[in-house]
């Protein structure tokens, strides 16, 4: 009995270490956003990548802020995110080597079917948001510093509605750093910031029958891929401002020598190659095209 147990333990340990060594050959650590992972694209993209290049990707999905932070801390080899300004800053500050434009999808503004703010009638997204703010209907903001939240803050700024900037000071590396968020001014009564992922934000908005903003992929999933379907309608879409570009940035080995830059670059080049771009273009969610290749 004892011997059997010993053999069992040895086998388990053996397979464990064996698996580890095998896996460590071509494993890429990538941080991405929860919405990218939730879109389901990675489920077809990564197997195709492995088939072509033998690269296995270990995906760590977080909010955009945390995903970029993982890159800055050298916890991952590559980041795959959608927040253009911050991606550029990431490269400019030397954390990443180069931004590869991969694809884009778009954002949509959602609201209850009866559209109490009359946002559907508006010509563009700015006036739609203005209508929401003027009606005093609830608006649910992700408020989690994610790409979607970053986009939403930009949209409020560009809509011409007065905004207020809330800044808090924290200490980073011994220096005072300001962190600021933007929201419509005097909006305490109708603007709810919940600091959660897209899915949670959608269910929250549905629960409250409120307006919100979502990436199209998550919305399609909740609208067409779920029973019962989410009880929210698109009230504004198609505006150029709602475009949502995705980029891949290998982490700079000059900052973090331990990262696998060679593999990261191989990944970035494959995803922007004709093969990678075709996988993206062919991807369908609930029968709808979700992502549009940017590198072809």
């Amino acid at each position: 009995m004892k011997r059997l147990l010993a053999i069992g333990v040895a086998l388990m340990l053996g397979s464990f270490t064996a698996g580890n060594t095998l896996a460590s050959d071509k494993v890429l650590k990538m941080s991405t956003t929860t919405s990218t992972e939730a879109s389901g694209l990675l489920d077809v993209l990564l197997p195709a990548l492995e088939k072509d290049t033998g690269i296995q990707v270990k995906v760590i999905a977080k909010g955009t802020g945390a995903a970029i932070r993982d890159g800055m801390d050298g916890n991952v080899d590559v980041i795959f995110v959608h927040a253009r300004d911050r991606e550029d800053a990431f490269v400019a500050e030397g954390y990443g080597t180069k931004r590869y434009a991969v694809m884009h999808n778009d954002f949509v503004v959602l609201g209850p079917a009866n559209d109490p703010a009359g946002a559907k009638k508006q010509a563009d997204v700015s006036s739609a948001l203005k209508a929401v703010s003027e009606s005093g209907s609830l608006f649910i903001s992700r408020g989690d510093d994610s790409g979607t939240h970053t986009k939403e803050q930009d949209l409020w700024k560009q809509s011409g509605i007065p905004v207020e900037k809330k800044t808090i000071t924290v200490v980073k590396s011994g220096k005072d750093v300001e962190i600021s968020t933007i929201r419509p001014a005097n909006s305490d009564a109708w603007y709810v910031s919940i600091g959660q992922g897209m899915g949670k934000t959608l269910t929250f908005a549905e629960e409250k029958q409120a307006y919100t903003m979502s990436d199209r992929g998550t919305y399609i999933k909740y609208k067409f891929g779920k029973t019962p379907a989410i009880d929210l309608e698109i009230v504004s879409e198609g505006d150029e401002q709602l475009a949502n570009p995705y980029g891949v940035i290998p982490v700079n080995p000059a900052k973090h020598p331990e990262v696998n830059n060679k593999l990261a670059v191989e990944f970035a080049e494959w995803i922007t190659s004709a093969k990678g771009q075709k996988v993206i273009a062919d991807y369908r969610l609930e029968g709808q095209q979700l992502f549009f290749p940017d590198a072809m």
Binding site: K62, G63, D144, S146, V192, I194, G195, F204
Partner: peptide, 23 residues
């Protein structure tokens, strides 16, 4: 639901700040 000013508690706020990378 971690709604700011309504239901955001110390622990949910911490979870959020962690998600944002604002350790």
């Amino acid at each position: 639901g971690n709604a700011k000013g309504f239901t955001r508690t110390m622990t949910t706020a911490m979870a959020l700040e962690y998600d944002k990378g604002e350790f």
